[in-house]
Nucleic acid binder design. Structure first.
Length: 274
DNA sequence: ATGACGGCAAAATGCCGA
């Protein structure tokens, strides 16, 4: 019996990417997939198609934006939408007097074969002086507070999987200069990412793909993919116990090369057989 | 100095993305 295969993928619309996502799950023999940017309401999510391929799905959607899900063929228990203290964002704060922050569909959890999986879509930030940037940092701080607690049991098997919208080191972007003054590489964002590592979480990919030029995202424009100009912004951060079970991890870059691909490639993690 | 691609929708232009 082989070990669990866990993946994360920002699919940039599950309705546009449905056939290729299902095909990828089959081809890569994936047990659990954390999905981000489903871009649909709960009633629009194609659960039946996933069921045909043997997967149960937990989803929380927000229409055209955001949306996260977990698809599993090894059980899907204790589903949790959002995390305690998850901040909201007020889209109309600039133009309306009454604050109306909305808790975005950016976090969902489930326990699959004994692993607590979080599918996370960290806010983009937009610009260093944008309210969305403050929101991003608050969101990460609130998540870190909870995530640190999830490590109280040293045997806890926890995976924080998703689109972190942070490139933690200069090796993780094709041009550090290009991103100077922009989001994703700023010191506060990198410190926020580091705070998860300081709490004990580990980037499960880096040991298997060290150094520069390992990316999970390439902009659709400017021929970024053929020019190999990408960013490493998708991560599976694992608790120490879970990280110790990892046999190998890889970015499926070939999936990004296909016609009609998401701008993100999937990240696949293979655990050792029990 | 802005756009490019791509997706979505109170849709044929505006928004969001990183």
């Amino acid at each position: 019996m082989s070990g669990l295969r866990i993946a994360t993928w920002n699919v940039n619309s599950i309705r546009s990417r449905l056939d290729r996502v299902l095909d990828w799950l089959d081809r890569r023999d994936v047990d659990v997939l954390a999905i981000q940017e489903t871009k649909c309401r709960d009633d629009q999510f194609p659960e039946e198609r996933f069921a045909e391929h043997g997967y149960e799905v937990a989803h929380v959607g927000q229409g055209a934006w955001n949306g996260v899900a977990i698809a599993s063929r090894v059980g899907l228990d204790d589903v949790e939408v959002g995390f305690e203290g998850q901040p909201g964002f007020d889209r109309d704060a600039e133009t309306t007097l009454i604050p109306m922050p909305v808790v975005d569909a950016r976090a969902i959890a489930a326990t699959c074969a004994g692993v607590r999986i979080w599918s996370l879509y960290i806010p983009n930030g937009r610009g260093l002086t944008d309210p969305h940037y403050t929101y991003k940092l608050e969101w990460l701080a609130a998540l870190q507070t909870q995530a640190a607690d999830w490590l109280a049991d040293p045997d806890a098997r926890v995976a924080l999987a998703g689109d972190w919208n942070i490139a933690p080191t200069d090796d993780d972007v094709w041009s550090p200069e290009f991103f100077a003054g922009k989001t994703h590489t700023s010191a506060p964002e990198r410190e926020a990412f580091q705070s998860f590592l300081d709490a004990g979480y580990r980037d499960v990919l880096r040991p298997f793909a060290p150094g520069a030029g390992v990316y999970t995202y390439w902009d659709y424009t400017r021929l970024r993919f053929p020019r190999r100009e990408g960013m490493k912004i998708d991560f599976v951060l694992a608790s120490p116990a879970l990280a110790g079970e990892v046999e190998t991890a890889e970015v499926d870059v070939a999936e990004r090369a296909r016609d009609g691909a998401s701008d993100h490639a999937p990240l696949l993690v293979q655990l050792r057989a029990p």
